[in-house]
């Protein structure tokens, strides 16, 4: 890493998140003797899988100046579809495919509404958040589906390596690697950054911005559906409110990871660090026996902290640059003025 790249990293949001992660690990270690345990880490990974999977799609969505608030409801709807099919003796593979298709269709609906009608994705996905949850409700009502095939519910505990790394862990690691390569090393990723940083430049350079966005919404819905499968196999049951409130966690992870809500900036690396941070904090709260409501509040607090930190880092950086230049002109030094932007 060159020295300029090093300085850029030191001033970045990602670095701030890494520091927070270290602090969180130290604090939780002090608080609980059970934290520093390989089995616990395996558990944290398992608990973070669904959030992480959806965050992999949410990161590029935020980069491209969109947002998907319907992911929790999409997950719920997909889980309900899976539960209904699997508990009615539909072959497992067919049920899985139908579930993934449900998620993809949900994402397609979001994407088309946003691009075809030029609507704000915040409002569209707020609407579909209610719509998808309502559909899930309408399908199963207040019952809980528990009659799932054993071959499916057992897959969660099937280990890939030793007794710590499960198959879902491996799948997630592969998905994260693929997402990182696509976003940061491929032409698609490059176009995503242009579409988010300067949408008009992208359009003028032949980037099909709308198509990219639809693709990302479909990816978001699809990953939410896959997360629904993971969650169902972990919890071994399905209810209409499965995954509700998940959008908040996903958003927290992505923003905490340094993605800029105004688009154009964000990394998979940052998102993964933030995922670990949220996982550690939640694990700490679980070890400390904090109830659900309080955990949600802490996560919300983390979200607010990360946004405020982003604003503060940006302001500090700009002010430092301005102060340097002002000092130069106050000192009367000759300088070549540059046109304003």
């Amino acid at each position: 890493m060159s020295s300029r790249a090093a300085r850029r990293f030191a001033f970045s949001h990602e670095a701030f998140t890494v520091v927070l992660l270290v602090v969180a690990v130290v604090v939780v270690t002090q608080l609980s003797p059970y934290f520093l345990d390989a089995q616990n880490f395996s558990q944290i990974a398992t608990d973070s899988l669904e959030i992480g999977l959806i965050a992999l799609a949410m990161t590029p969505l935020i980069v491209v100046r969109e947002i998907d608030l319907s992911v929790g409801s999409t997950l719920g709807l997909a889980a309900v579809v899976f539960g209904e099919l699997a508990s009615h003796d539909v072959p497992l593979l067919a049920a899985v495919l139908a579930t993934v298709a449900t998620g993809a269709l949900a994402g397609l609906l979001n994407g088309l509404l946003v691009t075809r009608f030029g609507l704000s994705s915040i409002v569209v996905t707020l609407g579909t958040m209610a719509l998808f949850r309502g559909l899930a409700n309408a399908i199963v009502g207040d019952q809980t589906i528990t009659t799932l095939p054993d071959s499916f519910t057992a897959s969660d505990t099937r280990y890939a390596i030793g007794t710590l790394v499960t198959i879902p862990h491996v799948l997630f690691a592969l998905a994260a690697l693929a997402a990182a390569l696509l976003l940061h090393r491929s032409t698609v990723g490059r176009r995503i950054f242009f579409a988010g940083s300067s949408p008009d430049v992208a359009t003028h350079s032949g980037v099909r911005v709308d198509r990219l966005k639809v693709g990302l919404f479909v990816a978001s819905g699809t990953l939410a559906a896959i997360a629904a499968l993971f969650m169902t196999s972990r919890l071994q049951s399905v209810r209409a409110d499965t995954g509700s409130g998940l959008e908040l966690l996903v958003l927290t992870v992505v923003l905490l990871g340094g993605a800029d809500i105004r688009g154009g900036r964000g990394t998979i690396f940052g998102t993964l660090v933030a995922l670990a941070l949220v996982g550690v904090v939640r694990s700490g709260m679980a070890l400390g026996d904090l109830p659900d409501q309080a955990r949600v509040a802490v996560v919300g607090g983390l979200l607010l902290l990360s946004i405020c930190a982003g604003v503060a880092i940006e302001a500090l950086r700009r002010r430092a640059a301005e102060r340097r230049t002002t000092r130069r002109i106050r000192g009367g030094a000759e300088l070549r003025p540059t046109p304003t932007t």
Partner: peptide, 19 residues
């Protein structure tokens, strides 16, 4: 700060306060 994000965070913080 974009209001939708900030108030989304407040949604859970305030709910924590209720608790």
């Amino acid at each position: 700060i974009p209001s939708i994000i900030f108030t989304l965070g407040m949604l859970s913080v305030v709910r924590g306060a209720v608790y």
